[in-house]
Design a protein around this nucleic acid. Structure first.
Lengths: 205, 205
DNA sequence: ATAATTACTGAATAAATATACAGTATAATG
DNA sequence: CATTATACTGTATATTTATTCAGTAATTAT
């Protein structure tokens, strides 16, 4: 997580205090009042900086649409697991700009420990009961067996598929949807990297 | 604390859910959107009623200036939720003999609060992405809309199905599996009780 | 050195939002 | 039986609020 300046930290605190006190986030004007700024743009620019650095999210156009992503001061109750979108071509990394939000839960929620949630896009695994927008719990590991559901990266494209190793230099990534076709990767061909495997799933209705 | 009506309760839930989901309270328009009202005054009058009864406070003139005074259930951030098998004919009750195990997680893991997990048996909801052995998070409520996935008890048999009210005395429980047929319940017929509805899902691989 | 970041003031404006007012209708209450 | 509460639609409007633009100035990175 990127460093923030002292003033940005004051603004972040101000937001948290306002929520603690009133139950809802401050407006730009509220921040100015609390911290003594005379222009709403002073608050605005600090908010944009905090957003850029991943500390808050701002819902465009909505009043008080600020939420704090990362609670800097106190330790999370259990542990907060990041939710990463499967959208961005090129990376399912844990870089802050890819983190949609965080979910507090026990690391042993599933039988196997996990590292992050992946937000599912598309219907390629629908016959495995994995629907669009589901959150798949991913464990970062290279310990993959045939039949595992894996997060695979091929040439900077990330997908969720069944894993099947046909022989020493041929891997097949199988979708669970008869309308989709297998992805066959010959070891020479393209570079395939297995980010991890699915150990569970959460669906928010 | 004074009694609130069913509609007022829905509004109160809506406020809490909005805070859980976004971090800030809803506007009148947000409430209308969520609950299907067409006039902002519908939300306004409900809010005034809830304020009068002491459930919320409204800061005059401030956008989203709603705070929930009385947190009906004191929000055990970390709580253990029972897992109940759908096997036993006759009861999806919370009686200890039905509890398979307990899962520690935040009550607001899903956008809507929930009361227990139900272990799914059979394939009747497979096209909704609900597989055998999945844990469906159930909120005990009577606030059911068409299309909700409900836990229904008919003559001591408990099932998970889509809910559809055809008219005042005909309810259809629809499976999400073309090999299964609808269950039609005429109000005179059998006694149907809706235990609650699905608000989320967990799958342990 | 020169661009970028930080840290503001001050003004303007479009959009979001709370809120009042005028109705309609039904159920509950005393 | 009158009154109050509930449960809305629909319209209007003043106010709040987010957000952009034009500046100034100091600090920090490249």
């Amino acid at each position: 997580m990127k460093n923030i300046t002292q003033q940005q930290s004051r603004v972040l605190d101000c937001i948290q205090n306002h929520i603690n006190k009133t139950g809802f986030p401050p407006t730009r004007a509220d921040i100015c009042n609390d911290l003594g700024f005379k222009s709403p743009n002073a608050a605005e620019t600090h908010l944009r900086a905090l957003e850029k650095k991943g500390y808050i999210t701002i819902e465009s156009g909505r009043s008080r649409g600020i939420s704090i992503v990362h609670k800097s001061n106190q330790e999370p109750i259990n542990h907060e697991f990041p939710v990463i979108g499967l959208v961005a071509a090129g990376s399912a990394t844990l870089a802050s700009e890819n983190i949609e939000k965080k979910i507090p839960c026990a690391q042993n929620l599933f039988s196997d420990n996990f590292d992050y949630f992946l937000r599912v896009r598309g219907l390629s695994m629908i016959e495995a009961g994995i629907m669009e927008d589901d959150l798949v719990a991913i464990k970062k590991t290279q310990d993959i067996k045939n039949g595992d559901i894996v997060v695979a990266r091929i040439d900077d494209e990330v997908t969720l598929k069944y894993f099947k190793k046909e022989n020493s230099n041929k891997v097949v990534l199988k979708p669970a949807n008869k309308d989709y076709s297998d992805i066959v990767v010959e070891s020479s061909d393209a570079d395939l990297f297995i980010e991890g495997k699915s150990v569970g799933l959460i669906r928010e209705n």
